[in-house]
Write a protein that binds this DNA or RNA. Structure first.
Lengths: 354, 354
DNA sequence: CCCACGGATTTTAACGTTAATAAAATCCAC
DNA sequence: GTGGATTTTATTAACGTTAAAATCCGTGGG
């Protein structure tokens, strides 16, 4: 289509490379590269012609070659986690989809890492991957205080962002997280608004920063309204633990009429305890969970819970990484998102309903 | 450590390459490459020395360079699916972990593909990826009759394997699947063994091969015992559809006392209907699902369902792909696995239990 | 009219690996 | 001990891309 068609090379077949595009457009390979990556170095007219050729031939840059040359792969690594049998919180599915969608939009690809349990194995897997291919960045989840993995990443100088705060107050790590305190507080206020006065809490064992925070939210919500906060249990995050804790709180001399739980898993344990006692969720005892796992919407009655804006988390993580890679040397971003209370039948009085 | 240490080069720093290892071991780069990839071409003694050097220096082959040179990346591509709100069957999580674990063990990495809904988008995403990087193989899920994606893969000549049969009876596609017929049949036999005589089925709308197969299993199980099979509904795979269908079957003049469902999602809809009617699952009406979604174990009472051996599926898919890539030109493998009936409270009479 | 300047483009070389080919070393038979 | 076959190792070139350096070319000043 150019004015001087004589320069045009033959129609290429098979995989289209820079050289093919260059021949077609009648320029050198480097100029094509520049037209694609550094538009300002190329004269507008030339650039037009080249981009037309790129379009026409359906050229896509070869990532392997780029990775080799640039030491950067446009890959973001993420470790898959085993699905625990007894856990409701399968945000993973949703999270991966959201993360991948955002990554794709920003021109990255997600590569999955496998490692057996244990941070040592995980770190080794990351290092091996890093030796084999110039992964651009890592996404970590479930970070905790003094996380080995964070230390490793930092020592390697690899960009990374975490879903979960850097609880040790280190501001040099970029993170995105959901405000658990605000969540359980909203849950406590919600059940209080339903008239409940004996609101118990079933949370995670000490040692979990997330658990501690969610407990505090419940505490604040109750105190604010002058309610007692003596009914609490800190247990492992399993359905069975939730079930037992619920029984204890209902056996109390002044039993709970509402239970704010630190996870859907625990809340489902509570529902089981109610089922065993012949009590009606919502009507007899209000129950709330946390995470809005798929299960929460599917049980009957539905489980009131806190929805984590997973898609936003994914988007923010990618954006954060994108910023890190762009070298916008601003300090690492920290994003704290509000969970949304989803009210379902388990916290509402009245006849059976959704 | 070799006898002639004089040949040993300097200790390398940063990323270790073939050349570094070669210098250290006192051989050429090609010989190192051979020692790693074609052991038989290298004299045993030399090989020993080289492998020791590899070990010592912690050499890992650069995948980008290999991909560029070999046109093969050791990457297996897989498309992430959006998590449908109203669906219980989040096997995805489990499946991805299993697939990735097997892939890692076999020396592959999983790369995630993103595409908006629609097979045209999906195909375009695959083709774009294929242009950019020499993906070794694809894994497809939820295949159906005359699947565009399968046709595309085949026209490109890319190795691929599917989770789900090639329903059009085409034997040239490698697949792994779970026997739905055997599953629902086992479920029907199970509830019949509990004494139920009016066993209904809630399945998927026509057009779904999986749905048709699961319906047939129920049919067989009932006929075998001389039971009537007039109670059936074919509906979309949503909780709400399951709920409504259950109400209809319970409003019948000779109502169902057991409902065998084609999915956990539908079964959970049935449980909701029972909840609304004040009926007790298991005791008043037996209910079974399909998939053993996380939710099945967490509801109260637990949902009797069919567990798909997802880890085996993942392993087999990778092995199948591995065979394809190794060029073991045997005809493509087909693996049909038996689901396992998991009996929980929803199909057992008696007092509330797990 | 020559030269310096600066923008546009091309040339060169390199990223790390491996197939193909060439060279060297080893072996064996006569 | 010589020649030919065989085994082992080394050299060359290429995969597709891009940073860096070199070249080309039109402009304007002296």
């Amino acid at each position: 289509m150019g004015p001087q068609d004589s320069s045009r090379g033959p129609v290429p077949h098979g995989h289209v490379t820079l050289v093919q595009v260059a021949r077609w457009a009648g320029v050198s390979a480097q100029t094509v590269s520049n037209a694609v990556n550094n538009p300002e170095r190329v004269a507008p007219a030339t650039r037009q012609r080249i981009l037309a050729a790129v379009e026409e031939l359906g050229y896509e840059p070869n990532l392997s070659a780029r990775a080799l040359r640039n030491r950067s792969s446009s890959l973001i690594a993420f470790k898959t986690r085993p699905a625990r049998p007894d856990k409701a919180s399968l945000l993973m599915d949703e999270f991966l989809y959201a993360l991948n969608a955002s990554a794709a939009q920003a021109g990255y690809h997600l590569i999955l890492v496998h490692a057996e349990d244990g941070s040592a194995n995980e770190i080794k897997a990351y290092r091996d991957l890093l030796k084999k291919t110039p992964v651009d960045a890592f996404v970590l989840t479930e970070t905790h205080r003094n996380d080995d993995r964070v230390a490793a990443m930092r020592s390697w100088g690899v960009p990374f962002a975490t879903f979960g705060r850097s609880w040790d107050g280190d501001d040099s790590t970029a993170w995105v997280d959901v405000d658990g305190r605000a969540g359980t507080r909203a849950a406590a206020e919600h059940v209080a608004a339903q008239g409940h006065r004996r609101i118990g809490h079933i949370g995670w064992l000490a040692g979990s920063e997330i658990g501690a925070e969610r407990r505090e939210g419940w505490l604040e919500g109750c105190r604010e309204r002058g309610l007692e906060t003596d009914l609490q249990a800190l247990v492992p995050d399993t359905l069975e633990a939730g079930r037992q804790a619920a029984h204890r709180m209902l056996d109390s001399s002044r039993p709970a009429t509402a239970l704010v739980c630190a996870s859907d898993t625990l809340a489902l344990g509570v529902l089981r305890a109610l089922h065993e006692r012949g009590l009606r969720p919502g009507t007899d005892v209000a129950v709330t969970g946390f995470d809005d796992s798929p299960t929460a919407a599917l049980v009957s009655p539905g489980l009131t819970t806190l929805h984590q804006p997973i898609d936003v988390v994914g988007r923010q993580l990618i954006q954060t990484i994108d910023n890190l890679l762009a070298g916008d040397a601003r300090e690492p971003q920290h994003v704290l998102l509000e969970p949304e209370l989803i009210v379902r039948g388990s916290s509402l009085p009245g006849p059976p309903r959704q």
